[in-house]
Design a protein around this nucleic acid. Structure first.
Lengths: 203, 203
DNA sequence: GCTCGGACTGAACGAACGGTCGGTCAAGAG
DNA sequence: CTCTTGACCGACCGTTCGTTCAGTCCGAGC
């Protein structure tokens, strides 16, 4: 907060980015055990610190959740910000948003996973949920534009299509693993191909 | 368990199916708050009973979870049991399993929702997860048969397709509401149409 | 009328929870 | 060397957790 008046501009005392490392471990445990089932002592054990040490860096358990959720929400919002208002046919913009979402989801997998499990028990969670819903609404509008332009089939309910598209992308957190057998690019391409043309061979 | 030796075949003492009603309320609260975040006092308040009254009917919190998960897993297993080994082209059997799953998911929405949120913290949860994985494997085999038969496009990774198909169906628990604006049959049809042919108009 | 047993209660239990606090330690500045 | 400061520790706090238990209530059977 208040840098010492003289020199020392950028080199902290002991370890540099301990909060970043801390958060990585914490989020991993939150996902494994579930946020509510994770005790501060679980986190202390997993990080190799004591409870007190964690409290020295953050205000509490909910603060840790808040930091993690912000990270996920910010990354997702950025995708929409740069793609949804772009040019091109609606269906192409839609594809770009989906591809961007998949990329964010893969790059920030643990954080987005945590975000998708939040149920709104506390104010922190409700805020994150509201920002997710905003994302949802904007993507929904994009789907409707694509239908209106005749670029997406009109025989399906647009709201159902939006939800299913979301389900497709978000399901990644349930099974995609960075060290698994599928490369991120292949998964992204397969997902987009599935969403656009389905499983059946084109005749 | 042990009916009285004389008459009275079917009429219990006080209320008839209190455990069934109890479970309905309990599962609703489990989903709202999350299993771990739900206290037995929360359940007592929601059911209009005291904590002790609940303990008179079940062994504990985990027992309630176990009862709920069994219900969901049994219903899903039944679908595979009656459809996966049936006759017809693989892709048709696949479609029947998907339709059956959607129907179960809609009919037993809260129970399946709970099942899909389980993370394996306890033995009860791990058992349910294992039965889910078994379901997954059998559906995966069906997808591969359909690909081998040329009824599903072969340019996508079969395992990815299986996961995405699962994601599509399971996403229902995230947004489908029985009292909402979508009828179950419409959602089922839209989902199958989406899965088979995708969003893009066939041209 | 008495007994039986299932439904239910209120108070309490030990354990575990999230969080606090006073103090220690080591390194950089003067 | 002394002082300051941020990192960290271990003991402890009040609260809430899941669970237990001795006892009450009441309809049905004899």
């Amino acid at each position: 907060m208040h840098p010492s008046p003289a020199a020392r501009v950028d080199r902290p005392r002991r370890e540099a980015y301990s909060l970043e490392e801390l958060l990585d471990v914490v989020v991993r445990v939150f996902i494994e055990r579930g946020y509510d089932a994770t005790s501060m002592e679980d986190l202390a054990r997993a990080t190799g610190r004591t409870k007190s040490s964690i409290y020295h860096h953050v205000h509490g358990k909910e603060h840790l959740l808040s930091l993690a959720l912000s990270r996920a929400v910010d990354a997702l919002s950025a995708v929409l910000e740069e793609q949804a208002v772009g040019e091109g046919r609606p269906v192409d913009r839609l594809e770009r948003v989906v591809r961007g979402s998949v990329q964010v989801l893969v790059a920030q997998l643990p954080y987005v996973t945590l975000l998708l499990r939040v149920r709104g028990n506390t104010e922190v969670e409700r805020e994150a949920l509201e920002r997710r819903r905003s994302f949802d609404r904007r993507l929904s509008a994009l789907v409707e534009q694509a239908i209106a332009a005749g670029e997406v089939r009109a025989d399906l309910d647009p709201r159902v299509v939006t939800r299913l598209l979301f389900g497709l992308v978000n399901s990644l957190t349930e099974w995609y693993r960075p060290d698994g057998e599928h490369g991120p690019q292949d998964v992204e391409d397969d997902l987009v191909a599935f969403a656009l043309d389905g499983m059946r061979p084109r005749g």
